[in-house]
Design a protein around this nucleic acid. Sequence first.
DNA 1: CAGAAGAATGACAACGCTGTCATTTGACTC
DNA 2: GAGTCAAATGACAGCGTTGTCATTCTTCTG
Lengths: 342, 342
Amino acid sequence: MSATIKSVAEHAGVSIKTVSRVINNEGTVKPDTLARVQAAIDLLNYKPNKAARDLAGRDNYVLGYVYDNPNAYYIIDMQKGILNECRANGYELLIHPCDASSHDIIQEILGMVDSARLAGLILSPPLSEMPEVLSSLDEKGVRYVRILSGSEALESGQPCVLVNDFQAAYQITEHLIQQGHRDIGFIAGEKQHNSTIERQKGFAAALAAHGLPQHPEFVIEGTYSFGTGVTSIETLLSLPKKPTAVFACNDEIAAGALFGARMRGVDVPQTLAIAGFENSPFSRQTFPPLTTASQPTDKIAQRATSTLIQSLKARKLGNDKQAIPAQVFVPELVVRESTKRS
Amino acid sequence: MSATIKSVAEHAGVSIKTVSRVINNEGTVKPDTLARVQAAIDLLNYKPNKAARDLAGRDNYVLGYVYDNPNAYYIIDMQKGILNECRANGYELLIHPCDASSHDIIQEILGMVDSARLAGLILSPPLSEMPEVLSSLDEKGVRYVRILSGSEALESGQPCVLVNDFQAAYQITEHLIQQGHRDIGFIAGEKQHNSTIERQKGFAAALAAHGLPQHPEFVIEGTYSFGTGVTSIETLLSLPKKPTAVFACNDEIAAGALFGARMRGVDVPQTLAIAGFENSPFSRQTFPPLTTASQPTDKIAQRATSTLIQSLKARKLGNDKQAIPAQVFVPELVVRESTKRS
DNA sequence: CAGAAGAATGACAACGCTGTCATTTGACTC
DNA sequence: GAGTCAAATGACAGCGTTGTCATTCTTCTG
């Protein structure tokens, strides 16, 4: 049926091993041999058989993306970014949605890594921030890259990509302050997401920097959901002293807050300003559109994937020590109507 | 490292071939041998190596989901449904987003099928409705299952799952009529999606059935996007005779229409009723929430996958003739505030 | 220009499984 | 109890690649 390494070798008049060297870029092939082999590959439209590769080689060419996140847009963007990088490097992607709060989540992940012989894992929050998960993976020698909230270089030099939620939250809060708001509410997501913690810290830091008081009753804890937005805004607007602006931990909460405000007949942004976080497509589609922070999720995912692949290569070549620098992404402030005072 | 078929065989005191028979459910193993082997498998926590299986066997255990659809919620639900079924049957899933309008889309799909040695493909609209794609796949002998809009059994007996958009659209339209609307606008999505055609037919049929006139100027063509909703509603509301209700071909358009109406200060649902289609999560989150039709996307996906797997098994066993009956799903009307007249 | 050292290439086993076909086992017949 | 036949099991090759190690070709040295 399709070409094999053998047919390519015959065509090029070399041994299969040499063809193998060419397709693996081992670099120890003479230029003209390489050209001959490459020509044969192109001619026959040869594609290495993944199964055989996986079987024969020590490592294989499948990465896994394990996630527990209800945000469809986030996941899709992640997948897009990961896939781009995977394709560019001849890797495949296995996706594995799961429930991070399940009691045997670790077994589940380990099981899939094992049965699919994954070369490595891409972890996004909250999984990337669960110590039990990470240590189990370390113990089993499973390679992974983490996407997580933070900005400090990790001591370990582990492969990771950071998102500086603190700074972005700081900027959003500052934007609200500059609009003249002094009483600003904060609606948090799940506290097991580091991003929530960081965003809240950024929020608090901005208030402090501008000499504004912290009102504990203005901070509501919830989940990254529309429903949280709806109920939280009710709570906030029922306070004797109401905030004039609200910073919601993500767009979904913000959309819920907007919905809740409208239910009560509160005008946004005139009476109440609302800001979200994430720049989900629908943050543009609410009425009014939401001020938010734009996170290049697909770029982050791509970067994470390339980091993982690099670390995989490094291990293969034995120079396992060489740490790969973590890249830090800072979400950008996007100002829209939901916070614009006329 | 992990257990192999050989270690299991030794443990159970049988040959590797017998173990192979057990894990493949070939049914020609004596009950007590089977029990011994099964015990060894459990004991060693043996998982067959997929790469070896794929390499040795004629067919392999990876399905592909190829899609071109900007709707993140749809894709996520599809993936969820497919994965459920895959896991239950020991298959893996490879996802492949693509651009259906690309000129070499066929080559791209064929290439990935080839290089990943896919056992079969799951196709959703618009790819599942592109004759060129289907015929190329047929020609190459690639197995696939289609998810598409329609209701008639396909002559060919090909594996497929149908969604009866016609009937659902009919119901939505009828609902609007029952609310007293006589002048109803229709905003269409891409016409290369069969769903658009079917929904429009259902719309027209309902009008006809209730003796209402068709107003060509009330039908706007666009894409399945928020933007289409925004601009279309402007067009409709600028007509000398305006519709009092609008049926948008999906929720995203409907959300855009709602946005557009609000921009013009038009009250929904009092002055204008708006209905969508799909029951996307955000159809619940607009203000007011959208009347829509609920499509059990994950169930549809799951059914499609099981159909594909069945057909794969049938081919393996040689009884390729036996056609698998196509299941038809009818989206259900979900009435919310966007069409409720007080 | 012989010899050494390194670069380039090749031969061949191994990876873990399934397919094919041969062999053994067991049940049933007369 | 020998003979028959089907059911159960096993031996072994082969899937397409990579890893290991041996071999050959180059280039450089003195």
